[in-house]
Write a protein that binds this DNA or RNA. Structure first.
Length: 491
RNA sequence: GGUCGGUUGGCCGAGUGGCUAGGCAGCGGUCUGCAAAACCGUGUACGGCGGUUCGAAUCCGCCACUGACCUCCA
């Protein structure tokens, strides 16, 4: 493990050399989805970002425990005391059991992750399965004096906490500003301050997701699950906490406060945040109503989509930008990614058949070093990919006989591409013929093209072109080779 | 209103005080009966105005635009 990997820590707003708490091991916690709706492109960003981190850490030899939760309770629709949680609301609308809703969207999320070749985390805990742990955290925070009970609910006392510790250091907020911005607006008499957030909420009679607790029948507050579950599986202090930038405040700030209040220490050593996917410059999000679901991308069934895009195209599209930059969606950009990916994958296939020479005119070692250097620099996948494209040019030049490669370099090149493309970037070859074509269809097309070949040999260009043009119109792509043809059916 | 970001060639998107990012598109070429596909070659862009510097797109200041979060409103 000679890699010194630099990661951008939101806490210090700078890149830091990553030093694990325990040598050789990494504890990673990432905020997962709230399963009350279909997975959309925005969900894919953190999933892919932290999948890349997970894969890279493992590749360079770390043992990683990656915990990514499923939020299936407690996200209030609005921050109001009579709020109903998102899942219960959805259940009412669809007349389903809340857990049924959770299951449907969890399954959908898993399916989407699999298609995107996102590895399953080591542990995927559900908030609803950790009510006891969350109650325990509430107890500790109450005992430490940083929470108070009010009419069956328990709230975190932000102002009191801020007097003894710092609050707002992750998001750069000042407690005075927060107070002046919220105090006047506080109409919630249960809370002492508008800044206070719920640790435990008493359930209204019609509220169906509820659990017993020392304070009331109710449910845990939205920020608590991550503290409870990260503590349970990674310990009171762990290496990396990730999530979307939109979660820095208040969610992650609340986590920091909860952990400090309950355990007396800062839980997280490195905070990492991925940026947002934008659509016409605006954050793509469910609450904004401009989200395009992943299944819509895969089917092309959305007014803004000119075509369907494969899961690998989406993955590659995201990897071509840095995780801390916003990434703007557009058909043109997706199409560019699709073509680029195809070129990259074709080059990988060519490596095996490269002719070998006594010595190399290409520098594989340098290419390799550049790829690793990019990844070590805060997971700079776009730079790594740029270097891989240099490798593509290298491969093509060798194929054309313009450059030479030795047997050992060829082996190293092969290793490098397989490692980066498949293991680290997590790309995979996709079947050219989705859905599978029948043997009969293949035979018929082959037959037509054989007839065309005969016509060509007879210089009957009229017949030859007619067959090609009509097949093309039907969606077939015909490629002539030296002594024959190949074809494939485009979507 | 507060906090923190962003502004790069036709599009997407990296990056650095002086040296080619990369992908896609476009253009030119190779190949081909012609195409397609593939491959090769090709682009001196960094919001505006000042300043620092031998030299800034890269550092500083101001301005403009824009985004996220919080707040507000609905």
């Amino acid at each position: 493990m000679e890699h010194k990997i630099q990661l951008y820590n939101t806490l210090t707003r700078s890149k830091e050399v990553f030093e694990p708490l325990v040598p050789g091991k990494v504890g990673l916690y990432v905020c997962g989805p709230t399963v009350y709706g279909p997975a959309h492109l925005g969900h894919a960003r953190p999933a892919i970002t932290f999948d890349l981190l997970f894969r890279y850490f493992q590749h360079i030899g770390y043992k990683v425990r990656y915990v990514r939760n499923i939020t299936d309770v407690g996200h209030l629709v609005a921050d109001a005391d009579d709020g109903e949680d998102k899942i219960a609301q959805k259940a009412r609308l669809e007349e389903l059991e809340p857990m049924e809703v959770v299951q449907i969207y969890t399954n959908e999320f898993h399916k989407a992750m699999e298609m995107l070749n996102v590895l399953p985390p080591s542990i995927e805990p559900r908030a609803s399965g950790h009510i006891i742990e969350q109650i325990e955290e509430v107890r500790k925070i109450l005992a430490a004096g940083y929470a108070y009970e009010s009419q069956g609910s328990v709230y975190f006392d932000v102002e009191k906490f801020a007097k003894d510790h710092s609050y707002g250091k992750l998001s750069g907020r000042k407690i005075e500003d927060l107070i002046s911005n919220t105090r006047d607006l506080d109409g919630q008499h249960e809370k002492r301050s508008g800044l206070d957030f719920a640790l435990w909420k008493k359930a209204q009679p019609e509220h169906i997701m509820r659990w017993p607790s020392p304070w009331s029948d109710g449910f845990p507050g939205w920020h608590l699950e991550c503290t409870a579950m990260s503590t349970k599986y990674l310990g009171e202090v762990f290496d990396i906490h990730g999530g979307g930038m939109d979660l820095t405040f208040p969610h992650h700030e609340a986590e920091i406060a909860q952990a400090r209040a309950a355990h007396g220490k800062d839980a997280v050593r490195y905070w990492m945040h991925n940026n947002m996917i934008t659509l016409n410059g605006q954050k793509m999000g469910k609450s904004l109503g401009n989200a395009i679901s992943l299944s819509q991308f895969l089917s092309g069934d959305h007014p803004l989509l000119e075509q369907a895009y494969s899961a690998m195209t989406i993955r590659f599209f995201m990897l071509q930008s840095h995780y801390r930059s916003t990434l703007d969606f557009s058909n043109e950009a997706l199409q560019a990614a699709e073509k680029g990916l195809e070129r990259l994958m074709k080059a990988v296939e060519k490596i095996d058949s490269l002719p070998v020479s006594a010595s190399s005119t290409v520098n594989v070692a340098e290419l390799r070093a550049n790829c690793y250097a990019a990844m070590d620099d805060d997971l700079n996948s776009p730079i790594a990919i740029a270097h891989l494209f240099e490798g593509v040019r290298m491969i093509n030049a060798i194929t054309d006989g313009k450059e030479q490669i030795s047997a050992s370099d060829k082996e190293e090149l092969k290793q490098l591409f397989c490692t980066f493309v498949f293991d680290i970037l997590g790309l995979k070859a996709e079947q050219a013929a989705p859905g599978g074509q029948s043997e009969t269809l293949k035979e018929v097309v082959d037959l037509l093209l054989k007839l065309r070949l005969e016509a060509k040999q007879n210089k009957d260009w009229g017949t030859s072109d007619r067959i090609r043009n009509e097949l093309t119109a039907l969606g077939f792509e015909i490629k002539d080779t030296k002594d024959g043809f190949t074809w494939e059916l485009k979507k």
